[in-house]
Design a protein around this nucleic acid. Structure first.
Length: 459
DNA sequence: AAACAGACCAACCGCAACTAT
DNA sequence: GATAGTTGCGGTTGGTCTGTT
């Protein structure tokens, strides 16, 4: 796909324009407006031109680009020479696709800086502003076409915040529920449109995951999107294309051995880039968090994901709704946006009510969680911003109501579940009917019929 | 196999800031 | 201080490639 810098010339004489660097160009008839114009070439550079430019820089150094034409006779304006050198010829340029780390960093930088490509490039050694700009624009376009927000989805923002906490002890604020309102908007739209049924998961995530990840303990991405997320959203499509980034990341990952856990469900394209020089802004592995059992995905859903799980985890038929198609699309996008994990854990006898009161605490419902998750959730909450920690009474309630004493390592995958609720700022009262949860984590919820009976409260 | 659409990339353009005269 | 020249930046365009219909 990538064109070589020295691609064969495609410019024809018609592509050449007369210019002396001060805007003297041919008129429509080809007549020169000046008597002695220098005809400067446009279009792709040839290998010979590259060689001339490189030779010039070698002998005269960078800068004074307008002199290149005078000194070497190269029929390119200074601007063009500078661009060519900067973007293609200068040493230490990193060619190839962006690594997941770089993509993460770009997303973060763009959220902070906006379209300041040059400043962003300063954080990405070997990358050019043009490269970053192109990268971002293609994704922006894609997302806009899909009617999705341009910036990373909420869980990515949360992920970034968590990564900072893990790696740099950075306790800057987590995304607020307000900042995460995009997800709620989708959920609310679904609710207000009367969507009260479940749909089949875009893909049978849990089953696939159960089959593919139960054998061994892997390093998994903390709060990562599900590995087989339906590629209906632009955030998820690249993920689907590069599933190796987003699934279980072995230490021997061919992609990014040093940064296996923070790849995102958006935009990853290729591997092999040097990961060793990440600037401080780049999130990176968080060993004390990411070493999770491989059955993480097969375990009960985070309360947070419960919202989306209710949409995607059930096996019932599509709703008989006149807008079912559009809703289906919307909900699928929602599913992608929040990167739903397998269906929610619920007590065998009924529904689990989980409430998140925007910036407050979990105040109810956690007793439905089982004992063996408590310690891990505590660990998780310890990573979060203090206001997001669980209320002590909730912890106690969860402990009291538990009947399991499974090992932490076995069930730490649940860490992320409550966090999802917190991070996504969802105020849910999710009821999952018709499902039972066995102690066997593989059984839960796949065939449940989920209902959004109280979803309107979100709005 | 052909047509089409989307993704990706290189390069150009215009403008603004900076520097030299 | 005014002007010209240079450099840097961001927006945009057009070509090529790839995947899909």
């Amino acid at each position: 796909m990538e064109k070589s810098p020295g691609a064969a010339p495609t410019s024809s004489p018609e592509e050449e324009v007369a210019a002396d660097g001060r805007g003297h160009v041919e008129d429509a008839t080809g007549q020169k407006e000046q008597a002695t114009p220098v005809v400067l070439k446009k279009g792709p550079w040839t290998a010979a031109e590259d060689a001339m430019l490189m030779d010039h820089v070698r002998h005269h150094g960078e800068g004074n680009w307008n002199a290149v034409q005078r000194v070497t006779g190269l029929l390119r304006c200074g601007k063009s020479c500078r661009l060519r050198w900067t973007n293609h010829l200068r040493p230490n340029l990193k060619k190839g696709s962006f690594s997941p780390d770089e993509e993460l960093l770009i997303a973060q930088l763009h959220a902070q800086l906006g379209n300041k490509w040059a400043r962003m490039a300063a954080h990405l050694p070997g990358r050019t502003d043009n490269e970053i700009k192109n990268y971002w624009n293609t994704r922006t376009k894609r997302r806009q076409r899909a009617g999705l927000p341009v910036h990373p989805p909420p869980e990515v923002q949360l992920q970034l915040a968590l990564a900072r906490r893990c790696r740099y002890d950075d306790f800057s604020p987590l995304p607020s529920p307000q900042e995460l309102s995009g997800v709620q908007a989708l959920v609310g739209a679904a609710a207000s449109a009367g969507y009260a049924s479940s749909r089949p998961a875009p893909l049978d995530l849990a089953r696939q995951l159960t089959q593919t990840t139960n054998q061994q303990t892997e390093t998994v991405q903390f709060l990562s999107p599900p590995p087989f997320s339906a590629p209906s959203s632009p955030w998820a499509r690249p993920f689907a294309r590069n599933a190796q980034y987003f699934q279980l990341a072995h230490s021997s990952s061919p992609v990014s051995p040093t940064t296996p856990d923070l790849s995102l469900g958006y935009g990853a394209r290729s591997a092999g880039a040097d990961q060793s020089r990440l600037p401080p802004l780049s999130p990176s592995p968080c060993p004390r968090v990411v070493e999770l059992p491989s059955n993480q995905y097969a375990q009960p859903t985070p309360p947070a994901s419960a919202a989306a799980t209710a949409l995607g985890g059930g096996g019932a038929a599509l709703p008989d709704h006149q807008n079912a198609a559009s809703l289906e699309k919307m909900l699928r996008e929602l599913h992608d946006v929040i990167k739903v994990d397998p269906p929610a854990l619920v007590p065998a006898s009924g529904g689990a009510a989980l409430e998140w009161h925007g910036g407050g605490e979990f105040v109810s419902g956690l007793q439905a969680l089982q004992q063996h998750r408590v310690d891990d959730m505590d660990t998780l909450f310890g990573l979060l911003h203090p206001p997001l920690r669980r209320a002590p009474e909730t912890v106690a309630a969860a402990a009291a109501g538990s009947t399991h004493s499974g090992s932490t390592s076995q069930h730490s995958s649940d860490d992320q579940k409550p966090t999802d609720v917190v991070g996504l700022g969802l105020d849910l009262d999710l009821q999952v009917a018709g499902s039972t949860v066995s102690s066997d984590q593989e059984d839960w919820g796949l065939d449940a019929v989920c209902q959004w009976s109280s979803v309107s409260r979100i709005c």
